[in-house]
Design a protein around this nucleic acid. Structure first.
Lengths: 190, 190
DNA sequence: TAATTAATTAGATATTTGCCTAATTAATTC
DNA sequence: GAATTAATTAGGCAAATATCTAATTAATTA
């Protein structure tokens, strides 16, 4: 569900020095000044890194008198690691992705503006996409004589024989004694 | 031990589109072309991302006829997630870090070139570092009369009284009947 | 064999971001 | 209260990198 955060989490850890900070804080708390000396960076740079880490909840600061003692939030680290192991995490990342885009692109590539086929795809994968589009013109439960099938297919391409044969071959239409009908849906992708 | 890899792993996942690729491949295999359409990027860009992901072993390609079908290496993902949960991973990251740098910097900041103290640190944290440095001049098992203690401390700063008092206060020296000696080591840091 | 197509690689551009210096804020000491 | 100090913030520069177009490679079809 809550996909946000995962990317920020990885970005926070995708830097050598920030990773070292995490490693250091795993052992004890450090001040900005100490981290700067140990990692040979300016305090302002350390501050910047700590701010990024704290933004995703991986570290927190605790004022100790004059100093800011930074400490690792191991709970958050474990939480994220466990999230990576969960089956639900990865699918959630693509919740808002346009999965139909490829099919649309293939259809667009092979279609003229008025919806006819420029050519019949040679690639099985793309042929399948085109055929599944065409087959939407057939209604379930109706038996179509071959002549009527050709009439429908002619809207897409002159070579109705090939289209007809492939529709049957791919299992989208069924045929018996010169009549055709829509096959039961099978989650077949190609 | 083998720290390398962790950083590359995070870097590989620290990009929105690569994360989406991982999310998509978690559900089924995809070709470069498909991913390009779905993510609205050029195939060359997808190729580049897949190359980075494959370099850290997160995805692999399998030639299916004409196409290159990319698939997620879930084993690697799980392996890395589990590594994050291991107690040994984080300390290993800082194996090659110069932990003494801070102490050295503090000593340098407060010392003149010939090793005397410019001032006695006001901050307890830094005073402790300086005192621990000075106390190295005392040998274990020997009882020093106060006059001798002052002699040693005078090498560092004229205010021997303060140094002496703080050494005792911080528990680095012990005192009884006008004699001083090195305290037993206690893993005290400040 | 020639033409098409999926994928990769090379090269260029633009964005991101790590790091610095300088300025500012907040807390502490003299 | 003035001076010092730890930390953060702001602004700028340089290195890394995400993306694109163009060229190349490898496989397939006509």
């Amino acid at each position: 569900m809550d996909n946000s955060g995962l990317l920020d989490f990885f970005k926070a850890l995708a830097d050598a020095n920030r990773l070292k900070i995490i490693g250091l804080l795993a052992q004890e708390s450090f001040t900005v000044e100490q981290l700067a000396a140990v990692l040979k960076l300016r305090p302002s740079t350390i501050s910047h890194h700590l701010s990024r880490l704290s933004k995703v909840g991986l570290v927190s600061a605790r004022a100790e008198g004059y100093y800011n003692l930074y400490q690792l939030e191991t709970v958050m680290l474990e939480k994220m690691a466990r999230r990576l192991l969960s089956k639900k995490t990865l699918p959630a990342i693509v919740a808002d992705v346009d999965l139909e885009a490829y099919d649309r692109k293939v259809l667009a590539d092979f279609s003229t503006p008025d919806g006819r086929l420029k050519t019949i795809p040679a690639r099985r994968k793309k042929l399948m996409i085109v055929l599944r589009h065409i087959v939407k013109d057939f209604k379930p439960g109706i038996r179509y004589p071959e002549m009527q099938v050709n009439q429908i297919l002619a809207e897409y391409h002159q070579d109705t024989a090939t289209l007809r044969r492939e529709l049957v071959g791919f299992g989208l239409l069924e045929r018996e004694r010169g009549e055709y009908w829509l096959a039961e849906k099978v989650g077949n992708k190609g």
